[in-house]
Every structure is written in structure tokens, then in C-alpha cells.
Design a protein around this nucleic acid. Structure first.
Lengths: 133, 133
DNA sequence: TCCATCTATTGACATAATGACTATAGTGTG
DNA sequence: CACACTATAGTCATTATGTCAATAGATGGA
């Protein structure tokens, strides 16, 4: 992953304009990680690459690692060290825990609701931006 | 608004399960407020009611007020006091500033992207949850 | 009148999440 | 051995939010 430099400063995925509050990717990281782990075990560095394919771009590596640590504390995922077959230092391999599967299912319901809310906002905007010209 | 009690504790709108990181409404509050103000000036307490109609439910009043303060600092909105015609103490009436209109437009683009990412996650989940049974 | 309730906004402190920079270290290549 | 890539984690500051509480005007009923 040569594209990532040591400290990537990716503030503001959101609207630019002037200065903004920091723009997080709005709690999409956790479900995305769980989905990746549905496919099989993986370590943080590899997960960060898989997230790009899910349109979760520009997530700082540091955030991926910290999120994984938090998710493990909650018991959603579990980890083991792999010291062989690496292309560098040891890897912490994460697997999906049963509780993680349940959390993921609930999260999907929540995401559907969020999407509907976003659609509502987009519609409300269109309504007034077209009515107001 | 008799439904809101003095200190509303609404932690975890997201997936429940066990203990969770706090579930914010993922940066939908700012655009929702801007959309409300497109329709005309309003004060915080009234905006909180309008947000319900946009499916932004269970947003603590305190958060609405703080978000408004922040948005005014950024110059997206402006406020004036209204001391007459209130049904209680003075109201701080917010109006949409020109910079706020621009921010809103950009935000809509960002929201469309977020919605597409969510749809991608939902699809990826379906793919594996159906293939895995 | 006094009290409860709704209306309306804000202060203050603690916690949580992230940004930003840095540290560490194994592996492979020229 | 220098260098780039792989791989994870520590630390401190900043930002965002949770949580409880304070303040205060208006309204209606006992």
C-alpha cells in the first residue's frame, strides 16, 4: 500500500466551503469492518485496503487500528497473532465473533434507516431549491 | 413540546446489542438545520420540532443549541433576538446566511455520496449473508 | 398569589472520538 | 547497509458529545 504516507491528513470528507468541523465517515467504518470479516479473517493493514473497495476511502490507518481495538473490547471480534508468512512484522489477525454477527445485523437495520433519512433530506432540499428560484 | 424532558438521555440510536460507542446521527443535523432555515427564520426550540419531521428524531435539545452556535461561528447562519410575541423567554432567531447556502449545496453532494456508500454496504452484506446460509 | 408546566437558552464538567505526530520493528531489494 | 514497504501502537491536543444543572419569562389552575 504505497499510497498511504506516514501521517495522512484527510480532514473534511464533507462539504468544503470555509472551515468546517471535522468530517468523519459517520460510523460507517465499524459495519464495513464487520462485513469484511464476514468474508474471512484479516489483519488491520489488509482491512484498510479492503475498505477502499467499499467506498470507505481516506480512512486514516490509525483510525482503522483504533476502531479494531475498540471492537475487540466490545467482543464483536477477536484477534490472534500471526508471526509466520508475513511480509513484515507480526500481524494481528481479526475474526468475526458471534456477537459481532448480531451487531452487524442490527447495524444494517440502522443503516437502512439512515439512508432513508438522507433520502428525505435530499428530497426536502430539492423541493425548496427548485421552488425557490 | 411536552415530549422532551429536562435532561433527555438518548444514547445509542444505533444498533443496540450490548454496550456501544455512542451513536450520533452522523452529521445529518447541520444539513437538516440548513434545510429548515431555507424555508424561513426559526429559533432553536422550534427547529428541534421541525427536525422530527425530517426523521432526525431523538436529537437532544442541548445538541441542537450547540450545533447552532457552531454554525453561527462559521458564518453559515446569523441570529437576532426576538423579545416580543414569544410564549416564554426571548428567542434567538436564526436566518440562513449566503455562505450557509453554499455549504448546504456542497453538503448535499456529500450526502449523495454517503448514501451510495451505505447502499454499497447493504448490498455487500446481503451478498454474503445469503451466500453463507 | 403561588405553584406547576411549558417555553427557551445557556453554563460547566466529564467522557468519547479523532487528528496529528511519532516510535518501533520485521522483510525484501539494490 | 540504506531504503521502501509492511505492520502495529503510543501520546498529546483538539473536537464533539453526554449529562446535569441553572436561569427565566409566560400561562393556567388551585
Amino acid at each position: 500500500m504505497p499510497g498511504r504516507h506516514p501521517h495522512e491528513h484527510t480532514h473534511g470528507h464533507g462539504p468544503g466551503g470555509g472551515r468546517r468541523r471535522q468530517g468523519r465517515a459517520a460510523h460507517l467504518l465499524e459495519p464495513a469492518v464487520l462485513i469484511c470479516l464476514m468474508r474471512g479473517p484479516a489483519h488491520g493493514y489488509a482491512l484498510a485496503e479492503q475498505l477502499d473497495a467499499l467506498n470507505l476511502e481516506q480512512i486514516p490507518l490509525r483510525r482503522v487500528y483504533r476502531t479494531l481495538q475498540g471492537m475487540e473490547e466490545f467482543g464483536w471480534i477477536a484477534s490472534d497473532w500471526e508471526t509466520e508468512e508475513t511480509q513484515g512484522p507480526p500481524r494481528r489477525i481479526y475474526t468475526l465473533a458471534p456477537e459481532g454477527e448480531q451487531v452487524l445485523e442490527d447495524w444494517m437495520t440502522s443503516l437502512r434507516k439512515s439512508r432513508d433519512t438522507i433520502d428525505g433530506l435530499l428530497a426536502a432540499y430539492q423541493e425548496h431549491s427548485s421552488a425557490g428560484d
